[in-house]
Write a protein that binds this DNA or RNA. Structure first.
Length: 173
DNA sequence: TGTACTATAGACC
DNA sequence: GGTCTATAGTACA
């Protein structure tokens, strides 16, 4: 399936979003750079992909605004683009990603709890691996999964981002 | 297949 | 607290 890749320039760096006909399929974070996380100068700048169909350009704009709200804890619930992770995940990964989307903002789960929720109580490690394969970090909230001892575990875009996202959401435990 | 690799968890000292 | 081990799922040769 064709993906339209576009860049979203933000105060923290350049995100790369990939859209299919069904919605947002991929999101890549800027390279981890803790100093960039402190930057606070300007809002998102959307660079449109002019080859993309009009509807996708709208999704692109929505994605940029949603990112701004998600990453700053801005007021109001952001409008989300339709999420359409590219097929290609294994059935187990897809079930993990679906479960992740059920974790509410502010709530957190451990890898083990998520594994139990999926009926595979000993698959905590595999859950972690599936989280790492998540093509839509933040929109599929893999940052809300922590290790059993309360440490952060991992995050594909870097732990600094995970920490920031959890702080913004004011995690409930 | 076999093997190595994980964003784990729990038991043991 | 460290350290060790069992474990599930995946990727790759």
């Amino acid at each position: 399936m064709r993906l339209w890749q576009t860049s979203i320039q933000t105060r923290w760096g350049t995100f790369t979003a990939g859209f299919s006909e069904r919605g947002l399929a991929q999101l890549r974070f800027p390279a981890p750079d803790s100093s960039a996380l402190e930057a606070d100068r300007r809002g998102p700048v959307v660079s449109e992909n002019r080859e993309a169909p009009t509807g996708m350009q709208r999704w692109h704009t929505i994605t940029a605004h949603a990112l701004e709200v998600l990453l700053t804890g801005g007021t109001g619930s952001p409008e989300f683009p339709p999420l359409a992770p590219e097929p290609g995940g294994t059935p187990f990964q897809e079930s993990v990603w679906t479960a992740l989307r059920g974790i509410l903002p502010g709530a957190v789960l451990t890898y083990g709890e998520l594994a139990r929720q999926l009926g595979r109580p000993r698959a905590a490690r595999a859950v972690g691996q599936a989280c790492g394969a998540n093509p839509l970090p933040v929109f599929i909230p893999c940052h809300r999964v922590l290790a059993a001892d309360g440490t952060l575990g991992g995050f594909s875009a870097g732990l600094a981002w995970k920490q920031r996202l959890l702080a913004v959401e004011g995690r409930s435990r």
